[in-house]
Design a protein around this nucleic acid. Structure first.
Lengths: 158, 158
DNA sequence: TATTGTTATACTCTATAACTATA
DNA sequence: TATAGTTATAGAGTATAACAATA
């Protein structure tokens, strides 16, 4: 269905290369929003939500961690991470065990089921994004993206 | 699609450069989540939410658009974009005007206030992300990121 | 008193379902 | 019938505030 107005279907901002921080930021912000929605939608069918997957992967990397440590790593509030951990515990993917020396702390750990989920997820290619990368980018573009992703990590870190 | 290579089960994923789609995807996914939270937190103080900013910028690029067109561009449902447009209209940043030939459609347009907001935002450097890019990346890294961002756009597009 | 974990509550964002008006 | 817009409602995700237990 063609539009009746003389309006281009594609954004015409592309004639200017995004070479300044603010241009890069604008492009990145739009892409981020859309990719996040894409991932959330793709995850919604799998029984485990996006934030839950993120916490499971974090536990797989960090090992048993307290709620505060997870919150710091994810850059969200402890109260927020607790909601996610509660859901994961209810589904049997994590357990809470007392900290050996500090009675205030509880260590959150992956259960065998949780570990299996992360492994399965990794073998399957980490969901929608890996599919998109493999489908839509040439090998050279994939290499460029792989070089740029650590920069995004740096931006996201504390 | 590149050939599948058997991947050694290394204990720490961070030691391996992200060179395959699934590794790139995993890193990207973590960075995306954190950056999105960072942006949302930074936007929350400015009186206009992240999704509202996104729609305003979209209108600035596309010109007057219907709710369906905005929804298609943002990759969300028309019902969802309407909630955002309602909020923007209540704050005086957009107006709705009848479509000249199709009585079913309403064109959403930026008001002068809305246009001023986008311009101000652009001059200010598009918020937190631009700050982070300028602060944390060398010029060479900024150029690399600028090259990679269009690839993210490609991944996010329809 | 400071820190950790937690519950209660609210707001943002997006989805699905159902309705109205126009083509 | 099909399409555009809308309202009502629900769920995910995260925030702040307040509280209990432990250091």
């Amino acid at each position: 269905m063609p539009a009746e107005r003389p309006k281009a279907d594609t954004p015409d901002v592309r004639d200017v290369p995004a070479s300044e921080p603010r241009d890069t930021a604008e492009e990145l912000q739009l892409a981020l929003g859309m990719l996040t929605r894409e991932m959330r939608a793709a995850a919604s069918g799998s029984g485990v939500s996006l934030s839950q997957v993120s916490v499971l992967k974090r536990l797989d990397r960090l090992g048993p961690s307290t709620a505060s440590e997870l919150a710091h790593a994810e850059k969200i509030r402890p109260q927020s991470v607790i909601a996610t951990v509660n859901a994961l515990q209810a589904e049997g993917y994590v357990t809470r065990t007392p900290h050996p020396t500090d009675g205030r702390r509880l260590l959150v750990s992956l259960t065998p089921e949780g570990r299996a989920f992360v492994g399965e997820r990794r073998r399957a290619g980490h969901g929608r994004i890996a599919e998109l990368i493999a489908e839509r980018l040439t090998p050279a573009e994939q290499r460029l993206l792989a070089e740029a992703v650590p920069l995004l990590r740096r931006l996201a870190e504390h």
